[in-house]
């Protein structure tokens, strides 16, 4: 384990009831100051992995070290160094926001002036200072999530574990949470390990992403590298009426780095190219020289969804839970 690897998992495995393999021999390392994401559908083993790393569950096989301590052998030492924000918004309705944080601080053995100062600092950070003395029962969903996040940071953990940090939040609250997580890493140097089944979250927030499916890591890397590992960007050209689509295809097929050129009946041509942004001017020049006029062009870069599809043969986007939620919304409206 190198000095700046804060989390190292080797063959980490969890089997429930001797049969159901929730996490299947996963290995990865998270570097200090990194925002590292576990991306996968519900039931892929993300929460179980977090439970193993936060010492809530004991591994069935393999091992993991967090902040220099073994999760199985030294759970207490690990717990001192980490913050954990679960996907259930675990705040106490019958306490005020400030009381929630004071209680949390006591659990981490903070006290006196240090605790008071730290509580004020995190309340400021998540913009809850004004409502700090109201009972949490009166908070909105977004406020509760922010309070929960604040509780996770209170004791300045080396590693912060966020299990589905923006589950069920609206777009605005989601972006606010992303902002806090970035600031936390930039200003306090906290290493963040998060799980998500939102592709955009993994893409925009995480430095590196492990894609997990059915308990196994199927791909690991920066979102950019993962996407670049696919065949490339998809370009769709719509030709001017009367333009010669056959000629266009022949011109394009001769260009270096262009693959999978295919035409369609409506006069458009599709192709895949390694680096779309650089390739497009070249494509247009070549077509112009051949006398083919282009009406419009669209460039589609691969998403993490495409990466997931590539590795698992299934799409990440359409979650059964999301489908159910949509069906329920429709039913209520109807």
């Amino acid at each position: 384990m190198s000095a700046d690897e804060v989390i190292v998992a080797e063959g980490l495995t969890k089997v429930f009831g001797g049969r159901r393999v929730a996490v299947d021999a996963v290995s990865f390392a998270v570097r200090r100051g990194e925002i590292f994401g576990f991306l996968g559908p519900n039931g892929a083993g993300k929460s179980t992995t977090i439970a193993l790393l936060t010492t809530l569950l004991r591994p069935s096989a393999g091992r993991a070290r967090v902040a220099g301590h073994d999760v199985a052998a030294e759970p207490l030492a690990v717990r001192r160094q980490i913050g954990y924000v679960s996907q259930d918004v675990a705040v106490d309705d019958l306490l005020t926001g400030r009381e929630n944080l004071h209680f949390q601080g006591r659990l981490y053995h903070l006290g006196g002036r240090e605790l008071r100062a730290r509580v004020e600092a995190v309340l400021e950070m998540v913009d809850l200072a004004e409502r700090a003395d109201d009972l949490v029962a009166t908070y909105s969903g977004g406020m509760r999530k922010r309070l929960d996040l604040a509780a996770g940071l209170l004791h300045r953990p080396q590693v912060l574990f966020l299990d589905e940090p923006t589950l069920g939040l609206d777009v605005q609250s989601r972006q606010r949470i992303w902002g806090y997580v970035r600031r936390l890493r930039d200003e306090e140097g906290v290493t963040v390990f998060l799980t998500t089944h939102y592709m955009e979250e993994a893409d925009t927030l995480c430095d590196r992403v492990a894609i997990i499916d059915r308990g196994e890591i199927v791909a690991l890397g920066s979102p950019r590298a993962l996407k670049a590992g696919l065949r490339g960007d998809r370009v769709t050209l719509a030709l001017e009426p009367g333009a010669d689509a056959g000629a266009a295809r022949r011109v394009l097929e001769r260009l270096a780095g262009v693959q999978g050129v295919e035409g369609s009946g409506d006069g458009s041509v599709r192709l895949v190219v390694a680096d779309g942004e650089r390739a497009v001017p070249e494509l247009l020049r070549a077509l112009e020289q051949a006398g083919v006029r282009v009406a419009s062009l669209s460039l589609q870069r691969p998403t993490l969804d495409d990466v997931f599809l590539h590795h698992t043969g299934r799409q990440l986007r359409e979650e059964p839970a999301d489908r159910l939620a949509r069906a329920l919304r429709r039913a209520r409206r109807g």
Partner: peptide
């Protein structure tokens, strides 16, 4: 049920 116990169990208590 509310996940609060997990929070207590994740603390060094």
């Amino acid at each position: 049920r509310l996940g609060y116990l997990q929070k207590l169990l994740a603390a060094p208590v």
